[in-house]
Design a protein around this nucleic acid. Structure first.
Lengths: 108, 108
DNA sequence: GTATCCTACAACCATATGGTTGTAGATCAG
DNA sequence: CTGATCTACAACCATATGGTTGTAGGATAC
């Protein structure tokens, strides 16, 4: 899923379809590449459930799925929590009465 | 940069080095792959500035760079803001007293 | 009906990825 | 010094990626 967002064209597509539905062809017109290339990008986003497609006549309207985007954001936020937990632990260590050498590594 | 995080092994490496410095070889021991493979993962994370390396004797100690992780999180958060902006606009439209029909002529 | 548009999918190519093994340079222990 | 360890880097392979073109089907317009 992060892989699906690790491409600027796909992030741009997500940006647009989060603001409203767009057909695949109207999206394709925005980028300097072939229709098939944009179609592939949309397929990758769809496989990651970042966008949904809805048929209307001969068009496929693409819309963004904010829930999946939130999942990705939450995944990255976990890193910040890990970091904060570490900082908290360091605070405890500094608060300890005596700690001559804070040795990190794993010499096992 | 998101690409660097779009791999579970690399996310796991980031998780660990955010909690403290680890040498490349001690990291390599955690995963069922060759030392060189882990070394490549670390190099990719380093290129994305998600981790830093510090030489100590014959070891290279890897530590996580929380700032870059925050940048990635902020990038994804923009999507949620775009989404909220759209919802706000929809709220305004629904709050309009008379709907903007394409009714130009006003025959008195 | 035919023509046109929108979409899907396949084949193909160049390049990047994730993994391997092997070699070589530094550094530390003896 | 020799030997062991940590690291870097190159070569190689299988596979996935991002792009292309071409073909085919479904829906609309005429």
């Amino acid at each position: 899923m992060l892989h699906a967002l690790a491409d600027s064209t796909r992030r741009d597509i997500v940006t647009h379809v989060l603001q409203g539905e767009h057909s695949v062809s109207s999206l394709a017109r925005r980028y300097p590449m072939s229709f098939a290339a944009v179609q592939k990008h949309v397929a990758i986003l769809e496989r990651a459930d970042l966008v949904r497609k809805r048929r209307q006549g001969r068009e496929q309207l693409v819309s963004g799925n904010i829930a999946a985007v939130r999942d990705a954001t939450a995944l990255l936020s976990q890193f910040e929590e890990i970091w904060r937990a570490r900082i908290d632990r360091m605070g405890e260590i500094l608060a300890e009465p005596d700690h001559p050498e804070p040795n990190q590594g794993d010499p096992t």
